[in-house]
Design a binder for these strands. Structure first.
Lengths: 205, 205, 205, 205
DNA sequence: TATGAATGAGTCTTCATTCAT
DNA sequence: TATGAATGAAGACTCATTCAT
């Protein structure tokens, strides 16, 4: 009973190593299965195909992350956004949440975010960006409502979503220790909040 | 006279299209040469390699860019850095320069910056980041000299270099028109300068 | 049970034929695998490489030969070398041993010795020559000890090792029947022993 | 007028280097012509094809050698063969002749004898062996006439021809200096003559 | 004399995938 | 559960050769 899943997990662990090292496209099922002590054919018992194997490595952490983000976003919309001084603390909380989730399975996220080219997860970063952008748009529009003659700068909004996501990718890539990560992300977040407040609105026409 | 170089240029043009679409690694010499109306073997008359073909697409614009950056950096170091309010204008100039260079052959830079994985140009972005980081470090240290008890936050510095480069990559990717690009990069640059001034220094120990 | 290994053996048999006919370098995996009734790709299930396929043909007989030679040499060094009249009989035994081993898989040795150019076995003859030379040097130096004012003629020693090896290669190439081979090698061996005794020493300085 | 042949000779010189290094089969016209400072196509102005280029390197020295050998052989047959003690001196003369010819263009003969696999000269060594064998057969038969109940050992005869040729190939390969070569070949020749006299005849039936 | 361009057949190799057992 | 075998298409690359100019 315990052994039944042993091989499956070994396979996934080996896949993780290979994907991390070579990326999805250049990873070889041959060498993954060899490392796991099985034949190529055996992989197809556990997964539908190469992409399925990638999913097995990456799907579960991804789900957790997604869920946490949605939860946070829906909480966020309920709070009173009129006091933008609170945005700071919110961002700190969000950052802490992100970091704890991302570093819970750092390799999986490294793979997902940086090594998925060629797989069906290829565009995942853009989906994240889309989510953030959409959420921030709502926030920004509330904010804009208080400034007649101003409107949301859409390009800036999109770019900020990019930067925010990439801040996490960069962190994940460059910092192995989650505690250091938390410390390092702080000025980054501050800068982003300040920049957001200062530049998210542009003159209407 | 016009026809003499026709095929070589056709080849490179087709390679450009393929690289842009699929990236270096997934691009196929077969389909490139087919598109150019020649055999695979013929490619090797014009280029040494698949990598050489990539270089033929990308090397010339890259050289121009490199040279301009070096020029700008060496000019920059000669100017008086004590007035950091001037940093703004400098950045605007630099941004304008970058944009004019990048958009002079947008596809080539799109390929170079975003589609070079697998080629010998793979790490080019990191090299750019390194250049910027090194240059900004020098600036930051001059800046730090005026604030006893402060030192340069190296992680932030590195991240900013990342962000700066990615700002251009993002622009190139999302905005086809150089004039719009110039307009859109402005708040981005402003935000980066402000953030830089505000967060590049951290408490010593 | 018989069929299980059928294809692998068929492949190796076909490879043997092709290598024998064209040599390693000019042999084509296409035509080998076609002859064996499989695709080129299938070859790579059985072997790592073209070179690995060559090894599959050649390695086992080579190992046997090597081992027998080492055994013989170590026995040889233990016997009393003072009576050089015994050298004759020893050589006959050695020759008989060599012939029985070589003709046990004549094609494999033909390939190994004469058709390996381009493979990792390319220098095998030189390695054999080295072995023989080294062993004969030891013998010759014992012999030389009995003749003051004489020393071993190194060029002649090396050449003799060449001739000895080539005597076997020549035999293998020209004589299909091992019994005839045994008969034919005899005067050759005699001549080599006589020549050895007569010319292996030269005047000191 | 002098320059007209300059390129042709440069081509041939470069071909020589490449053939010597890689052998006929692995030599590349591309790299030969590149080394000679011309295009691949230009080679076909000077030669019919790759094999023709090989011939251009090798044919002239070969002709000289052939002619000298024929001359020597026909002289040899005219002399009185009843005194076999003279055989020694004859061989010394022949060896000196061979060495002077072979070392007159050592590289060319190295190529011809050791690097011709794949070219039309591939079997040249066998042709030499055939020539020597044929000539020696005539000699041996005169010799045999004096020993009733004896006949020529054909295998030994053939093998001796082999050894003789290979003695020169070995020399050429291992000894760069013709004077040393002459010294080193002496015991080799002596041994061959002695062996010849001792073993060329076998019992009739 | 030579070039520049191109061909076309060939090289070995890698890969994800399938499937009977 | 897994294996062993095999496929077939594709990969980059090399080569001798040809030929118009």
């Amino acid at each position: 009973m315990e052994k039944e899943y042993a091989n499956r997990e070994k396979l996934i662990a080996c896949a993780k190593i290979e994907f991390l090292e070579k990326g999805f496209a250049k990873a070889s099922l041959r060498s993954i299965s060899a490392a796991a002590g099985m034949t190529t054919g055996a992989v197809y018992f556990f997964c539908k195909d190469k992409n399925g194997l990638f999913g097995a490595v990456v799907e579960e952490p991804l789900q957790k992350l997604m869920q946490a983000i949605h939860q946070h976003f829906s909480d966020d919309m309920k709070t009173d956004v009129s006091h933008f001084q609170h945005i700071d603390g919110d961002h700190d909380d969000f950052a802490a949440l992100m970091i704890s989730l991302l570093y819970a399975d750092r390799d999986a996220f490294l793979i997902l975010l940086d090594k998925s080219a060629g797989s069906s997860y290829e565009g995942i970063i853009d989906r994240f960006i889309g989510m953030i952008e959409q959420h921030n748009l709502a926030l920004a529009q509330k904010y804009a409502a208080a400034f007649p003659g101003k409107r949301v700068n859409r390009y800036f909004l999109h770019w900020m979503a990019h930067v925010e996501i990439n801040a996490y990718v960069h962190l994940l890539t460059h910092e192995a220790d989650p505690e250091c990560a938390l410390r390092e992300i702080k000025p980054v977040m501050n800068m982003m909040v300040e920049g957001w407040l200062a530049h998210i609105l542009e003159d209407d026409i």
